[in-house]
Every structure is written in structure tokens, then in C-alpha cells.
Simulated scan of single mutants.
Amino acid sequence: MTYPAPHPYPQAPVKRWWQHPALIISLLVVIPPAGIALAWLSPWSQVKKVVATVLAGLWFLTPFLGDPPKKTAADAKPQPVATQPVAAAATPPAGASTAPAAPTQSAEPLMPAVVGKPFEQAEKAVEDLIDKELAALSAYNDVPLPAAHADWTVCFQSPEAGVKLVPADANTSVHLVAPGTGCPAAKDTDLHPKPAPKPTPTPTAAPRPPSDDDGSDTSAGSSTGGGGGSVSYKNCTAVRAAGAAPIRRGDPGYGRHLDRDGDGVACE
């Protein structure tokens, strides 16, 4: 019995249509899961199957691993909020008063404490409460207030801190001193007071000299002693009354108060 001679070359296995390389590669790009499945059913080598599986898997997962899609301009616009219908006001029961409630009166502002603060801070604190401006004055009569006085210090304020203010009619003021200058003890004082004028001495009248016509006692004031008696006269009237006028220096009763011109002869 004879056998046919073997074929010199082995026959290649027959490929199915789903094993064609072009179809498998196309499915790996378009539909990666299907392409991977066909790649493992194909007669490819183990290395090719692994490489094809990894690349197709990365291609398939890339859209899911990227940044989320940005919102379009239409999506960024705020959507209108649905409003719920407002329920109608409840009807008051019969007999109830329908008069409107009296509005509550707002609390009146109080004058803040601004003594010791710069004028700039005091001005802001006060003018935020009232409609008018805060008046600024100098604390010293002899120190003029310059136009730029924002850094001057407040020494006195009107009204005092804590007083209620009427925003429409409140009149507020402060007295200021320059930086580095101390506050006076009271308003309307001078920083450099003028010295008080010295009092003018009142002239005094000169002493009146004794007159011959003096209306004093005309009797001679004399005292006589035995042997060495002395005589004295108060004025010329007494000398004339005694009959001794004129009286010369050395005569009894002569005195300097009787000789007005000092020529030695008195009561001439």
C-alpha cells in the first residue's frame, strides 16, 4: 500500500474575515473594546496582542481622563428662579381696627466724645450724624486758625459728649490747638498774655509853708523864768501880737520858721 508523498511546504492556516489585520486595526481605533477582542482571537503574537490592548485601552480612556467640558456662554447665564405665588394678606376679623400702626421713632444720635482727637477724626465722627458741618475755632484768642488744620487737636467741644443731636438742626463746634501746644484751662484765653500796665503814681501835694496870717492861736507861747527865761513864738502873728516884730537873729524868740527868706530878720 502506498502513501502519497508529503507536501514539501506546510500550508498556511486559512484566515477568517474577522481575523484580517486591517479590520482589527480599524476596530481598535473606532471601537477599542471590539478591536481588543478580535486582536486576541487573531493569530498575532503575544507581544502584538499586549501592545494593541494597551494602546487601544489608553485611546478609549483618554476622553474620560481629560478636563471636564467648559460651560458655554448660554450655560453661564443665571437661570431665572421660579417665584412662588405670594399668598394674599389675611383678611382681618370683623370688628378689628384697620387703622395703620404708628411708625416707631428712631433713636436720636448722641454727640460723640472728640476731645483729644485730631480735627480730621472729630469731623468725620460728628458729620456722619448731622446734616451740617462741624465748626472749627482756635482755642486761643491770639492764635489764628489756619486753613489746613486737620491735624490740630480738639480741646473743647460743643455740645458735650452724650447730648442728643437733631441731625437737621444740630450746631456743633470744636476749639483746636496746634500740634505740640497744650490746651488752655478755659476758652477765650491768650497763649501769650500781655503784661499788665504798671499803675501811674498819684502826685502828692507839697507841704504848705507856715503863713503869717495863720488862724492859729495868736497868743505868744512864752515862758519866763527868773533871771534866764526863754521866749518862743509859734508864728509871726504871735510875734506881732507881742509887739516884738520885726525880730532879728539872736533876739529872744527868733526862730528859723519865722524867717521865710532866711535873711536873719523875721516877721518883717
Rank of each mutant, 00 (worst) to 15 (best):
M1G: 11
T2C: 07
T2P: 05
P4T: 12
A5W: 05
P6R: 02
P8S: 12
K15H: 12
W18K: 05
H20D: 10
P21M: 06
A22F: 14
L23F: 13
I24M: 03
G35I: 15
I36G: 00
L41Y: 09
P43H: 04
P43E: 12
P43W: 07
P43I: 04
W44D: 10
K49E: 04
A52K: 03
T53P: 00
L55S: 03
L55T: 07
L58E: 05
T62C: 07
T62N: 06
F64E: 09
L65A: 12
L65G: 13
K70D: 03
A73G: 14
K77Q: 15
Q79K: 11
Q79S: 14
P80C: 13
V81H: 03
Q84M: 10
P85Q: 14
A90Y: 08
G95K: 02
A96E: 11
S97E: 13
S97C: 14
T98I: 15
A102K: 04
P103K: 08
T104F: 01
A107H: 01
L110S: 06
P112D: 02
K117Y: 05
Q121C: 01
K124I: 00
A125E: 12
A125R: 00
L129A: 02
D131P: 06
L134Y: 00
L137A: 02
L137G: 04
N141I: 15
D142T: 13
V143W: 04
P146N: 01
A147R: 08
P159R: 05
G162C: 03
L165Q: 04
T172D: 05
G180A: 00
A185M: 11
K187D: 10
K194H: 12
K198R: 12
P199Y: 07
P199F: 11
P199H: 10
T200D: 10
T202M: 10
A205S: 10
P207D: 00
D213K: 07
D214R: 05
T218W: 05
S219N: 15
S219G: 10
S222E: 14
G227K: 07
G228D: 09
G229V: 15
G229S: 12
S232Y: 07
S232P: 07
T237H: 04
T237W: 04
R240I: 12
A242M: 02
P246R: 08
R249N: 13
D251L: 08
G255K: 03
H257P: 05
L258D: 08
G262W: 02
E268F: 04
